[in-house]
Design a protein around this nucleic acid. Structure first.
Lengths: 415, 415
DNA sequence: CTTGTTAACTCAATTTGATTGAGTTAACAA
DNA sequence: TTGTTAACTCAATCAAATTGAGTTAACAAG
């Protein structure tokens, strides 16, 4: 039977047929065979994803061993995924005796994820394939970020994105959405924000209805962190942190493959934290952020609004910029110490709207505290690494949210 | 059928009959009906636990709504749990029309959890019932904390604990174990420690074999956090942090009901963090810890080794102690700001080896930053609250680890 | 006092999906 | 050529959740 459903999987959002989900206020999530299958499917996909990260592929038996499932269960799931086009066979591989294993890999073009970043003055959009590679990106300016305007631009960008490869909507797994301010997460009210008109809108529901696709909402730093996990510097890592340079500075924390949100979705607000600097305590984003570098340059009558302009100043070694970098490096060292001791990540990734060369300069000559739980003899990755750079980072990340949600089981620990 | 197994549940540790768990290096965890049942059982138990937290009880239908399971599924699980003695019926309750619901509650004496805290000079032991109440506690001194000595004392304490209520081993759900230093979590080597002889021992396996019970190992702060969740100030909370006063100071973070460990189990090492103080940057535990108060008193030629002695000095308002409290309060405010902005908890609980009156004094007149994500109009609990106090906190917490593990499903988010 | 409505619960049938066990096939080794 | 090993397939079994049709008990209305 298996009436291969129109949409990719069972369309997560309206999965619970109609019955028990009556009240809707239920917090819990009972397990049943459907849920179990969903979980196991993610297990298989994430095994293949890990294999891909190591530029490899995997056979049924191998995945079974890795996931703890029986080979038969893996076989069924593989058949399912192959029929859906999410994975594909790619030859056989024999390692010693026995029948050579049929290798499978994720089919990059088996499905896509859409990502939007809404800013006060523009909407960014990306479309990524199952390998996390962007196949489309664009930016539409906004006069004013009202829900109406944003909706219009998002619809335009959506059809533009689908048009680029002539994709039908059922090839889109879902949509990730990044918005400024504390939105959508738990309906925070009473906080002032850049986009006051959105105050009473549940952004997730709104976008879900607008685009007719399942939707995930996150802040920029968390989204960026996911981008690094899917196809960037944090590929294959389960625990890491991501220092994201937007206007200010944010921290996306990934704990056991999942984003750490805290009780109200505000975890990682590192910008407001006071750190000791030679000149006295300062808030981190006063020293280490896009705004801070621009302020610092402005004092010296230099303007550098764009990433390109900043890069040019770096190339020409403008003294004011170099001085800022020196200060920023100190702040970064303090922040690193904080993050390492509080979250114990495998690494810290720098990413966002800064030129790559400046990230490189920050990481280079960074003198980190030797008194940290992160000083380990068996490290395989640097304590601070450079991630993706440029203004599209968050939009890419928003799409990556969807892949992570679809490919990564929510828990794996065997207790 | 259902051959009610000797031990409580299927004895978590050696659950996987014999088959797939061949290699053992598998990280993944496939879902099957057994696992699903396990998960759903936890869902039911945690619903009852929450009901108990509100001093209530719950019926089948109510639990079904809460958990998203069908009433039938809940019924089956309830029957199971009742047969095992973990829960019991407690009357009927009618709320309007319809047949009154049979109410269920956790049977406090249906099972117990054992907890140990090993320190360089002593082993502490507690036994708690299913309500998280301690029914036994004791402390045996150690000449030297060698594995042999510790093993002996643990066995002695175990049989003493079981003896107090004439319990057989199958009434014990499991053992929680707190050890100093970075132990057992991920086999850290190359770190100096208070207990060098343990370097090559996998503490969990060791204890499991020694006591013939499933075992969980954590650090003191994490264990204390669990104690607060099971029967203390954090009851019913899903996200909070716990500042634990041991020798130094540690932070136990609970995120979505689970302990946050980080990549190598060292998350929450807040003691080493530099915070701005009026006199310049200082490490937190130089200002806010048991050792720091003792140092501060010693300068003034006052000795206060025990909690009782400290309390006495507080009652007589010894100036040196009062001065320390003023400084500590500033440090606590800084730490709060840090924790709130980085983890966004529902609250921060103070607990551990300090007199309750000193916790109260710290919390009182604490002037917290108004610029924090935790400043919310809809708060239901203070930003910093007082938890359990006294030297048994960690030992109690170690037992609480077991309850949390048995009663709290690993994920609930409906994506 | 009778009857209708509602909610909680039970029993039996169905369904999903994982596990188990018995083949089958292909590679390597003797 | 034959034996061994590993990967995979097919069919049967099993666990546990869901579904649907009763049954029971309380309250409300006439």
């Amino acid at each position: 039977m298996k009436p291969i459903s129109k949409d990719k999987f069972e369309r997560r959002s309206n999965a619970g047929k109609a019955s028990s989900s009556s009240t809707g206020n239920s917090t819990g999530t009972g397990a049943n065979s459907e849920r179990a299958r969903q979980h196991n499917r993610k297990l298989v996909l994430s095994a293949l994803q890990d294999a891909y990260a190591g530029n490899g592929t995997a056979g049924r038996a191998e995945i079974a061993r890795l996931s703890g499932l029986s080979t038969q269960a893996v076989s069924n799931i593989i058949a399912d995924l192959e029929a859906r086009g999410l994975i594909r066979a790619c030859g056989r591989r024999s390692v010693g005796r026995g029948q050579p294993a049929i290798q499978y890999e994720i089919n990059p073009d088996g499905a896509y994820a859409l990502g939007f970043e809404v800013r006060p003055d523009a909407v960014f959009c990306t479309l990524i394939n199952l390998h996390g590679k962007a196949v489309f990106w664009d930016r539409n300016p906004l006069q004013q970020a009202t829900p109406q305007n944003v909706a219009q631009e998002m619809l335009t960008l959506k059809s533009e994105a689908l048009g680029i490869r002539n994709l039908s909507a059922n090839m889109i797994l879902g949509v990730g959405l990044v918005m400024p301010g504390p939105f959508g997460i738990t309906g925070i009210t009473g906080h002032q924000s850049d986009l006051p008109e959105w105050q009473d809108i549940d952004v997730r529901d709104w976008a879900q209805e607008l685009l007719d696709l399942p939707c995930l909402v996150e802040n920029d730093a968390n989204a960026a962190a996911m981008a690094e996990r899917i196809s960037g510097a944090a590929r294959g890592l389960r625990d890491y942190a991501c220092l994201y340079f937007g206007a200010g500075i944010g921290l996306g924390i990934v704990n056991d493959t999942q984003i750490l949100r805290g009780a109200f979705g505000n975890a990682g607000e590192i910008g407001h934290i006071r750190i000791p600097m030679p000149s006295g305590p300062a808030r981190l984003e006063q020293v280490l952020s896009r705004i801070s570098v621009q302020k610092h340059l402005k004092i010296n009558d230099i303007s550098a609004q764009t990433t390109e302009a900043l890069e040019a100043h770096f190339q020409s070694e403008t003294p004011a910029l170099m001085a800022w970098i020196d200060q920023a490096r100190l702040a970064l060292a303090e922040a690193t110490n904080l993050i390492e001791n509080l979250y114990d990540p495998e690494t810290i990734v720098l990413c966002g709207a800064m030129p790559a060369v400046i990230f490189a300069a920050l990481v280079q000559d960074l003198s980190l505290s030797p008194h940290s739980v992160s000083v380990r003899p068996d490290r395989t990755i640097d304590r601070v690494v450079q991630g993706s750079s440029g203004p599209m980072t968050a939009a890419l990340g928003s799409a990556a949210l969807v892949l992570n949600d679809e490919f990564t089981p929510k828990f794996m620990g065997s207790s």
